[in-house]
Design a protein around this nucleic acid. Sequence first.
DNA 1: GGGGTTACTAACAATAGGTAACCTAGGAGC
DNA 2: GCTCCTAGGTTACCTATTGTTAGTAACCCC
Lengths: 120, 120
Amino acid sequence: MSVRHPGVSTDDCPVREILDRVGDKWSVPIVVLLGERGHRFNELHRRIDGISQRMLTLTLRTLARDGLVSRTVHASVPPRVDYELTELGRTLLVPVRALDEWAREHRDDIRAARQRHDAG
Amino acid sequence: MSVRHPGVSTDDCPVREILDRVGDKWSVPIVVLLGERGHRFNELHRRIDGISQRMLTLTLRTLARDGLVSRTVHASVPPRVDYELTELGRTLLVPVRALDEWAREHRDDIRAARQRHDAG
DNA sequence: GGGGTTACTAACAATAGGTAACCTAGGAGC
DNA sequence: GCTCCTAGGTTACCTATTGTTAGTAACCCC
């Protein structure tokens, strides 16, 4: 814990705080789809390959808690719940898309590096 | 698995692939410090608050496998190992910094939203 | 009463991450 | 000659978190 070399603690590293929220398995796919347009629960469930109902519930709940997603219940029958990005959620879309673009550009580089590594 | 509504599967979502690598607890702090300059093993160990030797080893190993970090062993006594970002690793710094900037700008919004949520 | 919609819970499995002890090799102290 | 120190790990073991499957509830339409 040097003072001259200030280190990276969780407290003074906001990006870690964000990745703790958004770096989980499902937040980014949800945010990306909601960035496209609002979705209903089962609509998300159908479009996100492999997600379980439980994880969709939990992840939407966390995103709503953090003010990134809004949840609107319509008192209709059958019940209907719409999820959308909030203003804050839409701003998050910008760096997420930057990461997405990087990923698309460099996924082959990473795969190649991994193969070189595993072979050599 | 609708065909008309192409969903987000892990296969066609490169950003998920990246977050599976880099969304863990320690990769980003390491990449950020190495973006500053090259570091030796124990230098990283000292500057990253709370990381264990084991996790530092494991994370550096994965980053090296994916071609993001280079590892140079000097055959001296005591041994000396330098870690640096590769060219690929330096390009990753760009979107990571975008996320970092977002995090710094909006951490208060998220904290406020969470408090509102937990209170209400 | 069967089925679609939204959601919750319990029970369980897999993974991530932490702790602590040990290894290597040479040099210093004694 | 023996012990301890250092840098950079490895190994074994344990727990906490994450995620899965499956089952249930409630609601109302047909």
